[in-house]
Amino acid sequence: MKRLSARRRHPLAGLVVLLLALGAVGGLYSAFAPSGTAEAADDASSLQIQEGKGLYITSCSSCHGLNAEGTSDGPEIAGLGAAAVDFQVGTGRMPLQSREGQAPAKKQLFTEEETVAIAAYVASLAGGAPIPTAEQYAADGDLQEGGEIFRTNCASCHNFIGKGGALTRGKYAPNLTGSDPKHIYEAMLTGPESMPTFSDGVLTPEQKKDVITYIKTIAAEPDPGGYAAGRIGPVTEGLLVWTVVIGALIGAAVWLGAKPS
C-alpha cells in the first residue's frame, strides 16, 4: 500500500485512475446491459427471428407492412405479441382466406416451428404477450370456478358448453370443444376478431386455466342420458320428435288402422 500511496502524485496517476474507472463502468455495463444484446448473442434465437422474418416478408407483409406497421389492407400487428401471431397462424386463420365475414379456422399453412418463428419475429419488433407455456393452459384448474366464469363471460357467444354460436352479419363465435387449449388461452389473452380481450387483469392466469379446464372436461364428459344429438338442446330434440318419433307413431297408427283383409 505504501508504494501505491507513495506514487499517488505521479504525473500519470490521473490517467491510470481514469482508465480503471472507465474499465469498471464498461464492465458493469456489460454485466447489467438489457438482454437485447444478450439475445442477439444467442445464435438459436436470432436464427429463429431471421427465419421468421423471411416468412413474414413473403407471407404477411403484403397486408401488414414490412415492419408490421399495417397497411390499408391489414392492421398494425407490431406490439400484439407472439401469442396473437401463434393463435392466428397456428389455427390457420392467417394467412387470410378472404376479406368477407370472419377468418375461419382452416388447415395451417405453416408448420408449428415456422409459426413460432414468425411469432418470435413479430415479438422482436415491439414485444407483447408471449406464447403461453404448457403449464399455463393445462386442464388442471378449478372445474366449478371455470364453469361459472365461462357462463358469465363466454357462454353468451360460445354457448353453455362452448358449442359456438352465431353473431351478427355472418360472424360467429367458433366451437371450442375441439380447440387446442393453447389457442383458447391465446384467444382469451389477445381477443381475436369480435372477441373481447381478457387481459390478465380481467381474468387472472389462474382463471384462464379454470376456463380451459371447464371446456375440456365438459367436452370429454360422457352423456349419462344417452344419445345427445349434438348437445345443442331443444332444436335437435324437436327435430327428432317431428321426424323419427311422430313418423314411427303415425306408422303404428296406419298399421293398427289397416283394414283386416
Binding site: 357462463r151 358469465t152 357462454a155 353468451s156 357467444c157 360460445h158 354457448n159 353453455f160 358449442k163 359456438g164 354460436g165 352465431a166 363465435a173 345443442i232 338442446g233 331443444p234 332444436v235 330434440e237 324437436g238 320428435v241 317431428w242
Partner: peptide, 13 residues
Amino acid sequence: YPDQISAGSQPDF
C-alpha cells in the same frame, strides 16, 4: 343467474 345467457338458447319446439 339473471346476468348470464347462452348463445343458441332455444325453447322447446
